[in-house]
Amino acid sequence: MPERTAEFGKYGASGIKGHEAVARRLDALADFIATPVTTRRGLMARLHYLTRTPHARAAAYDAGLTVTDRTLQAWLAGTRSPTKQNLARIDDAYRAVRRRNVARYLLARLNRAGRGTRVEIHPLNQSGVRPSHQRVVELRTLNIRHWEALVAAWSTGDDRALDDAWIEQIVDLGSQWGQYEYVTNIGFAA
Results as ranks from 00 to 15, higher is better:
residue 92 D to V: 11
residue 49 Y to F: 14
residue 88 A to N: 12
residue 101 N to E: 15
residue 164 D to L: 10
residue 100 R to Q: 11
residue 163 D to Q: 12
residue 90 I to Y: 14
residue 49 Y to G: 00
residue 123 P to T: 00
residue 113 A to M: 04
residue 82 P to R: 02
residue 163 D to G: 10
residue 87 L to S: 01
residue 177 W to P: 10
residue 89 R to L: 14
residue 121 I to D: 04
residue 58 A to I: 08
residue 63 A to M: 13
residue 84 K to I: 03
residue 51 T to S: 06
residue 96 A to W: 04
residue 148 E to Q: 14
residue 72 L to V: 15
residue 105 Y to W: 12
residue 51 T to H: 04
residue 138 E to S: 15
residue 140 R to A: 12
residue 149 A to Q: 13
residue 80 R to N: 06
residue 61 Y to M: 09
residue 176 Q to N: 12
residue 163 D to A: 08
residue 103 A to L: 10
residue 53 T to E: 03
residue 60 A to P: 03
residue 174 G to D: 06
residue 67 V to T: 07
residue 177 W to S: 03
residue 95 R to G: 01
residue 78 G to C: 01
residue 73 Q to N: 11
residue 78 G to Q: 04
residue 56 A to L: 03
residue 60 A to E: 10
residue 107 L to D: 01
residue 134 Q to E: 13
residue 159 D to Y: 09
residue 104 R to P: 06
residue 91 D to Q: 10
residue 118 R to Y: 07
residue 60 A to M: 04
residue 95 R to P: 09
residue 51 T to C: 06
residue 105 Y to M: 09
residue 68 T to W: 03
residue 125 N to Y: 00
residue 168 E to G: 15
residue 79 T to K: 14
residue 83 T to I: 08
residue 72 L to Q: 08
residue 176 Q to P: 02
residue 103 A to E: 09
residue 157 G to F: 06
residue 110 L to A: 08
residue 136 V to F: 06
residue 149 A to C: 08
residue 75 W to F: 12
residue 81 S to G: 00
residue 60 A to Y: 02
residue 113 A to T: 03
residue 150 L to W: 13
residue 51 T to N: 07
residue 95 R to L: 04
residue 107 L to I: 07
residue 104 R to Y: 14
residue 134 Q to I: 05
residue 133 H to R: 10
residue 50 L to E: 02
residue 119 V to Y: 01
residue 100 R to K: 11
residue 71 T to K: 02
residue 59 A to T: 05
residue 58 A to H: 06
residue 44 M to H: 13
residue 151 V to W: 14
residue 63 A to V: 05
residue 176 Q to T: 15
residue 53 T to V: 02
residue 96 A to S: 11
residue 111 N to R: 06
residue 157 G to K: 05
residue 77 A to I: 07
residue 65 L to Y: 01
residue 85 Q to R: 04
residue 80 R to T: 08
residue 52 R to V: 12
residue 128 G to E: 05
residue 43 L to D: 07
residue 173 L to K: 12
residue 110 L to Y: 08
residue 58 A to Q: 15
residue 64 G to E: 13
residue 160 R to N: 08
residue 132 S to K: 15
residue 154 W to R: 05
residue 86 N to F: 01
residue 50 L to V: 11
residue 121 I to T: 00
residue 75 W to R: 07
residue 137 V to A: 01
residue 147 W to P: 09
residue 154 W to N: 00
residue 39 T to D: 10
